[in-house]
């Protein structure tokens, strides 16, 4: 299963920078990121080249962070595909908590990283594959 790194950050100048700085120091490559804002604080969500190493390193620094299983779905970069993916999940009764997407090569491949409610208890991966999408595992995602 693909892993996403979640980090608690206060909403203050310079806080994100200390995270990226420490990852840079240990040679971690950030493949994608998203930031969720809650006013006083936010969650930084990262797809990185080595999630476990990154997690250990940030935890050592004293960051409040966690590795979270996510569904990384490969989507051909064409109109209607995200709609089809979301339709499949909806039909399967699967709830999305949060998601972000990025395109690797325009007109070819997009990636949608999805947090699923109670992921382990759902058949989300099956549902997605059945709808004709590829689901990336940890290594595939990290080595894009």
């Amino acid at each position: 299963m693909a892993k996403q790194l979640h980090i608690f950050v206060e909403n203050k100048p310079g806080r994100l920078k200390t995270i990226t700085e420490s990852l840079q120091k240990i040679g971690i490559n950030i493949r994608a990121f998203a930031i969720q804002d809650r006013g006083d604080y936010g969650l930084m969500k990262l797809i990185v080249s080595d999630p476990r190493q990154a997690h250990l390193s940030l935890a050592d620094m004293g960051c409040a962070c966690a590795l979270k299983d996510v569904l990384a779905v490969s989507i051909p970069d064409r109109p209607g595909n995200l709609h089809r993916l979301l339709g499949a999940l909806a039909d399967g009764g699967i709830n999305i908590i949060d998601a972000h997407g990025f395109v690797l090569q325009p007109n070819k491949q997009g990636i949608c990283v999805i947090e699923i409610e109670n992921l382990a208890q759902t058949n989300a991966e099956q549902v997605v594959r059945k709808a004709g999408f590829d689901v990336l595992d940890d290594d595939q995602l990290n080595n894009l």
Partner: peptide, 15 residues
Amino acid sequence: EVNSKMFSDEVKKLE
């Protein structure tokens, strides 16, 4: 202070 033990990876739970 939020620590790793109480940190939840979901905003909903933190809230």
